[in-house]
Design a protein around this nucleic acid. Structure first.
Length: 573
DNA sequence: ACTCCTGGCGCC
DNA sequence: AAAGGGCGCCAGGAGT
């Protein structure tokens, strides 16, 4: 990758293995394949193979597979023991390109893309698959899906792909868009591989943790002992004869009302300001109740099999490009439960966390000289900020910066916002401009060109009743939209970085036994033999740095990973 | 019995 | 100290 300058033109196929192949599955599960030239046109005859697995297996030298959707075909390849080097996911690309063209939220399936291309009625995307609590079958049951042109399923794929190549070239920064499409496609491969691998999970440690915190379960079912005790304690605190169900907010609000305390909700932060003996056990109840319902014995039984927690990741599942998961809540593993994430014997977890993504990304996209200088250090950015004359300590510096990115409207962060604006005018100006664009109904884009959905497609309607709530500057909805677009450019550009980082890391790990088992916005976990851990840690660091250079071009901004090599996730910093 | 909505809180 | 951006998930309750 030497010679990469800036974000443009970074993604190019090289070498003899750079042959692209298109692959389309027929309704019967057979596969039609043909080689492609650089422009996406057929460069050889169409071959028919008995299956996608057979087609890919027969062409080990293929540099990139162009297919309808990685999620639809790759899990079956992996199940058959077949990995691919690179892919191009036409439906993922369609979502990004159609979004860039101002139509975020509209159908992105291949049939929809093909229909648009030919001016035909556009079919809706198939509804998301219902989850059944058991992730196992869904990974492998996803069968071949019909293409719009039944007579020649390859034709629609080739037409849409060729058109996409041309549309990417018409964007303001074609190199960036091509990098985004390649990165998103690579992310799809990573997601399928990671879903298959699963997070190493000790059910035994998990059960021990549950019993320790929640107590035993009663034989007849129902709440575990600690929850029952705390519920009893809460009731007692309201007085003799009082019965309060702490898991029912309305019940709790009524009980406090009888005690002369008016609550608007039972949120923890509101309860904490209340002086009443029921508050303390109630807060402890809520904490444990959350653990019980979200990560308790039921979760364990549904999601952990053979020592692994397998979630189904959906790259780009959110508007900003962040991933989501289909079930199991893999991206919300509570800190306390991380004790159950254990490397296999003789193996290690390389836990890597990219520190202070928001300010680093903001520095890179705004090119604010002062903020870039602060972000040029690999040290804790907020600490550097507070040492270098920012009016406040580390926490205040952090609050001010995050407040600027999130569009904070009140509170402590706001006090220091003025200082922030003086010191980093280009950075604050960048997010302010994004907010203004949102309020005025315009679209904003991430650094690589991921585009926010138009108003109305994201739950923010700009033209509902006028007047707002009197704070000026348009309706409440317009201001909400402004906060969304303000945040979008930063969070989404961080997601741009993340997919390229994943793509790079995946390549770095080729040839090692190490496996990528977890990804969460700005954090990755690699599971590897102990002796590979130093190399894996170095691979992660390189991937983070490389992604920063490739995505954002020549800036002094660094994207350092904090890396810990541990046997248990809970032991990582 | 089902779906849809809400409250609340887990993660970033 | 205050409560803002993105999500998923669960339980309960309302509506059908």
């Amino acid at each position: 990758m030497s010679g990469v300058t800036g974000g443009d033109g970074a993604e190019q196929d090289r070498g003899t293995s750079a042959v692209r192949w298109a692959l389309a599955e027929t309704r019967e599960g057979r596969a039609l394949v043909c080689p492609l030239d650089a422009g996406g046109a057929p460069a050889g005859p169409v071959c028919e193979e008995s299956s996608a697995v057979a087609a890919v297996r027969a062409r080990p030298g293929a540099g990139r597979w162009v297919w309808r959707a990685t999620a639809g075909v790759y899990p079956r390849l992996l199940a058959a023991g077949v990995r691919v080097e690179r892919a191009y996911d036409v439906e993922a690309a369609e979502g990004l390109l159609h979004g860039y063209e101002g139509h975020g939220g509209e159908p992105r399936s291949l049939p929809a893309a093909w229909a648009r291309l030919h001016g035909l009625p556009v079919p809706d995307d198939p509804p998301p698959r219902v989850r059944d609590g058991d992730p196992q079958p869904s990974l492998f049951e996803t069968g071949p899906t019909p293409l719009p042109d039944e007579a020649d399923p390859l034709r629609a794929l080739l037409e849409v792909h060729a058109a996409q190549t041309e549309r990417a070239g018409r964007t303001a920064h074609p190199g960036r868009m091509r990098l985004l499409l390649a990165g998103e496609s690579a992310a799809g491969l990573v997601a399928a591989e990671m879903s298959r691998a699963g997070v190493p999970w000790s059910a035994e440690a998990h059960r021990a943790l549950l019993t320790e915190l929640l107590g035993e379960r009663y034989a007849g079912g129902g709440e575990p002992r600690r929850l029952a005790e705390l519920a009893e304690e809460v009731s007692r605190a309201f007085g003799p004869g009082e019965r309060v169900r702490p898991d029912l907010p309305a019940d709790v609000v009524r009980a406090f009302g009888r005690a002369g305390i008016r609550l608007t909700s039972t949120r923890a932060w509101e309860l904490r300001r209340v002086d009443h003996p029921a508050v303390e056990p109630l807060l402890r109840y809520k904490k444990l109740y959350r653990l019980y319902t979200a990560r308790g014995w039921t979760w364990l039984r549904s999601w952990v099999r053979d020592g692994r927690f397998r979630a189904e990741y959906q790259p780009g599942g959110t508007a900003t490009g962040r991933w989501t998961t289909n079930g199991g809540g893999a991206l919300q593993i509570p800190k306390v439960v991380r004790r159950a994430v254990r490397a296999e014997p003789g193996w290690r977890l390389v836990v890597a966390d990219a520190g202070q993504m928001e300010p680093r990304v903001l520095a890179a996209i705004s090119r604010d000289p002062g903020l870039m200088e602060v972000a040029a250090s690999g040290r804790d950015l907020y600490a550097v900020l507070s040492e270098h004359g920012f009016s406040g300590d580390r926490e205040q510096a952090k609050l001010a910066l995050l407040g600027a990115v999130y569009g904070q409207t009140s509170g402590d962060g706001l006090r220091h916002l003025a200082a922030l604006r003086r010191r980093f005018p280009a950075a604050v100006g960048y997010v302010d401009a994004a907010a203004r664009a949102g309020e005025e109904g315009r679209l904003v884009r991430t650094w690589l060109g991921r585009t926010c959905p138009p108003p109305g497609a994201d739950g923010h309607t700009l033209d509902e009743e006028a007047g707002g709530d009197g704070t000026g500057g348009g309706t409440a909805a317009a201001r909400a939209r402004g906060r969304f677009t303000r945040n979008f450019v930063v969070q989404g550009s961080a997601a741009d970085w993340a997919v390229v980082m994943l793509a790079t890391l995946r390549q770095e790990l080729v040839g090692m036994r190490a496996e990528l088992v977890f990804f969460q916005h700005d954090e990755v976990i690699v599971h590897c033999p102990a002796e590979e851990a130093p190399a894996a840690a170095e691979a992660v660091r390189r991937a983070g740095a490389r992604a920063g250079e490739v995505v954002f071009g020549a800036t002094p901004v660094r994207f350092p990973f904090g890396v810990a090599v541990v046997e248990c996730y809970a032991d990582a910093a």
